[in-house]
């Protein structure tokens, strides 16, 4: 296995059709790094929307209120039942359905008057499209997390006079996090790559489409694909480190092992006791 891989790497580095000079030239090109930045922003906002709305949908589904859970069910049915590419094209066409949108009191002064034909509309709709789709998947992840917390927990909270909302926020969701975070990490990493579909909106400033445009001009697709691949890998690696950190943070109380804080306290305690020693 390792031998084959070595052979492949050796072959690749010596095969001039890979155009390693072009790879080196464009690896830190401004257009590429800006594209990477747009990709990161798209991922971030889509996940913020996806997690926020997904949590709301999960809570709605579990609320026991038939109207709320019905609405949530229909949402999931639509957004998980159609391709994300189709949804992105739809949000792109939204601008032609409603060219002028304003946020404010109806017939009153507009707080934001924003002409969707302008600059960042494509970015906005790309985030919206990706986020709304993601919410459908996050809702199921959050729901599984909530269901993993035993009923005894909400019984105990309720018996202490805590309201349903407080019980969710302080008792159930923090414990559900342990189940929610690993698949959410996967969703973030998957979202990073799904952003390449925003060309459907159309938005062309993300990493994938930037490299695609450059490659189209210089007729050298291979090295630019490798450039983009390198960036995606680098960002994914950072995300994986972040995921590890989050998992540890929410594992509090899950094991019998002492936390670093408890170990420090213990060490101090022992230090005090042993203070008179040699």
């Amino acid at each position: 296995m390792v031998g084959l891989l070595g052979l492949f790497v050796y072959g690749a580095t010596t095969n001039e059709r890979y155009h390693w000079d072009t790879y080196r030239k464009y690896l830190f090109d401004v257009r590429i790094s800006q594209g990477a930045w747009v990709t990161i922003q798209l991922t971030f906002w889509a996940m913020v929307l996806g997690i926020g709305l997904g949590t709301a949908l999960a809570v709605m589904r579990l609320s026991g209120n038939p109207v709320l859970s019905g609405v949530a069910w229909i949402y999931l049915w639509i957004f998980r039942g159609t391709p994300v590419y189709l949804q992105l094209v739809f949000w792109g066409l939204f601008t032609s359905l409603y060219p002028h949108m304003r946020f404010g009191i109806p017939w009153g002064p507009a707080f934001v008057h924003f002409d969707v034909q302008y600059v960042d509309a494509a970015f906005f709709f790309a985030c919206l499209g990706l986020g709304l789709n993601e919410a459908g998947y996050m809702a199921e992840i959050v729901r599984a997390g909530i269901l993993s917390v035993g009923e005894g927990q909400s019984d105990a909270a309720t018996a202490l006079g805590m309201s349903w909302g407080l019980t969710m926020r302080r008792i159930v969701l923090p414990q559900a996090m342990r189940v929610i975070i690993p698949p959410t990490g996967n969703e973030v990493i998957s979202m990073l790559k799904t952003t390449s579909l925003v060309v459907a909106v159309p938005l062309g400033s993300d990493l994938y489409n930037q490299q695609h445009q450059i490659a189209g001009v210089i007729f050298q697709p291979i090295p630019l694909l490798l450039v983009a691949g390198t960036w995606y890998l680098a960002i994914t690696s950072v995300l994986m480190v972040g995921q590890h950190f989050f998992e540890k943070r929410f594992a509090r109380g899950a094991s019998r092992k002492m936390t670093p804080r408890q170990l420090r306290a213990l060490a101090e305690e022992l230090g005090k006791q042993g203070g008179g020693g040699p």
Partner: peptide, 10 residues
């Protein structure tokens, strides 16, 4: 409660 039901994350 019979099974204590303490909040394990606290």
């Amino acid at each position: 409660f019979q099974h204590f039901n303490l909040f394990p994350h606290m």
